[in-house]
Simulated assay, not measured.
Amino acid sequence: MRRGIYLLEEVDFRPMNSQRPLTYLTWLTGYKKEDEEREAPELTEGLSIRSRQIDLVGAFYAVGITGHPQFKAVTLWDCHGGWDGGWRQMMEIYDGVDGRLFLSDIDDLRFSAFSRPLGAVHGSPALADVCAEGYAAPLYLFESATVRPGAALDYLAAVREERAPILADHGHRPIGLYEVLFCDTEVVTVWGVSLDDHLAAQRARDAALGLDDEAEPDERLLAWAKRARDYLDGPWRETLLAPFPGSKLSPSRVRSGSSSAG
C-alpha cells in the first residue's frame, strides 16, 4: 500500500468580511463536486487543475474563538494514488509555467494562503476509507505542533500509542496523523469530535487541574501534555474547525443558512 499524501491549506481573507469565506467555500465545494465525474485531469483558465484524483475531502470554516485568525477557511485534500497520482498532477501544472496558472475566478477574494504537504504515518486512516464509510463529525480538532528536528515520526508514534486511546475515551476519532513533508520540525493531526465530547474533555482536564469540582477528572490528559514535551520544540496549538456543507467530511451537504460568527 502506498503512503497517503495529502495537502492542507489555510486561507485568510482581508479586510475582515464574513461573506468572503462563505463565497470561497461555496465556490470551492461547488466546482470540486463537478470534478468527481471527471475522467482525466485538465488545466483550465480560472480554476487551474481539474481532477478527480485531487480530492477535496474537507472544507472547513475555522472557529475563530478557538484561536484562529478571523475569518479563515481550511481545506484538506487527498492526492489519490499518492506521489504518482494526485501529487504528480498538481506538480505537472508547473511544467512550462502555463499562463492559465495566473488566472483565477476568485482573484482578490483571498488575502493569503498557506499550504502544508502532508504524509500519513502508521495508524493514520486513509481518508478515502473514512469517506467511503460515510463518517462525518460536527467538529474537527486540528493540531499543529513544532517538534525537535527529526522527532516528527517519534511524536506521531507516541500520539498513536498513548494519546489516541485517551482521546477515544473522550469521543475523539483520529482522522489523520501527518508528518509535514519537506521539513523535519512539524506535525499535524486531525480528530473528529462532537460538541458534547469536546466540552466534556475540557472539563475533565479542568477537573484534573483542580479547577472544576463538578466534573470527573482525567489525569491522563495532564500526563500526556507532560509526555508531549519530550518531543515538542516550539509552538503547539489545537483549534477547532467546523465542516462546511458540501464537503465530504461534513454531516450535511445541503447548506441551511449562514452566519457571520467568528
Rank of each mutant, 00 (worst) to 15 (best):
L195C: 01
A152R: 08
L22S: 07
S252M: 05
T44G: 00
D95M: 10
G119E: 14
R173W: 06
L211V: 05
S104A: 05
R100S: 09
R110H: 09
V147M: 01
E34P: 07
W83C: 03
S144F: 04
R2L: 12
F71G: 00
L156D: 03
P174T: 11
A120C: 03
D184C: 06
S194M: 01
P117A: 10
Y94T: 12
L249Y: 02
R203M: 03
E133Y: 07
A164S: 14
D218H: 06
S258T: 13
G192P: 00
E143F: 04
E37K: 14
D98P: 11
A73K: 01
A151W: 07
S260A: 15
A126W: 11
F142G: 01
D213P: 03
D95R: 15
S104T: 05
R116P: 05
R2H: 12
M90C: 11
Y6Q: 07
V74D: 01
S250E: 05
C131V: 15
W236D: 10
E39L: 14
R227P: 02
Q202N: 13
T185D: 15
A208D: 04
A136S: 15
D35G: 09
P117M: 13
L8D: 03
K32M: 13
W191E: 06
S18T: 00
V180C: 13
Y231W: 13
Y6F: 04
R173Y: 07
W83Q: 06
E162G: 08
A225G: 12
R220P: 07
P251S: 09
D78H: 14
G85S: 07
L181G: 02
D105A: 05
G123E: 05
E238G: 10
F71V: 07
V130A: 09
Q19K: 12
P41F: 03
L8R: 11
Y231Q: 02
H170R: 05
